[in-house]
Design a protein around this nucleic acid. Structure first.
Lengths: 70, 70
DNA sequence: ATTCAATGTAACGCAAACTTACCATCATTA
DNA sequence: TAATGATGGTAAGTTTGCGTTACATTGAAT
């Protein structure tokens, strides 16, 4: 990421819970490790665009719904 | 990017031209280097989510409009 | 209370994103 | 012709995304 980019706000946990999915289930749908989902929810890092698109698709929302610029 | 992720299709150049912006101008709006914009347009790499959000915002569209899963 | 599913955490490593900087090409224009 | 602006190539270096493995904690529920 570029120097001046600030961290994003994310609603992943909330939207995942609304969809009644566990981290495990979401990770399988999005074809990533559970660790990645877990780390994203906890703000350890922001996912790549590919991953963000897959998660949004799985949850039936837009990338913009999941992550917001500060 | 994760192992199994395929490259995205992208419409960046088309949308940038529609907005009448040069690579330089877009890069300034999105606070990244011109090389990054250039590399994304040419499929060298896919931007991070932060960058994708900034570009989409600058171009008045959604991340989903810019990049599509194969 | 014990069990079991769900979640959190940490260390290590590789691949990808992103930067800076310099150079080439092509089109336009002074 | 020279100069300027937009784009594309290359390359080295740093940071971050993400996987893997393995273990700890929490909470629910029977």
């Amino acid at each position: 990421m570029g120097k001046n980019h600030k961290k994003l706000l994310n609603n992943l946990e909330e939207l995942r819970r609304s969809a009644n999915l566990t981290q495990q289930e979401l990770s399988e749908s999005a074809e990533v490790s559970r660790k990645s989902i877990n780390a994203i929810e906890n703000g350890i890092y922001v996912p790549s665009t590919v991953l963000a698109l897959k998660i949004a698709k799985t949850l039936g929302c837009k990338v913009e719904d999941l992550f917001k610029l500060p």
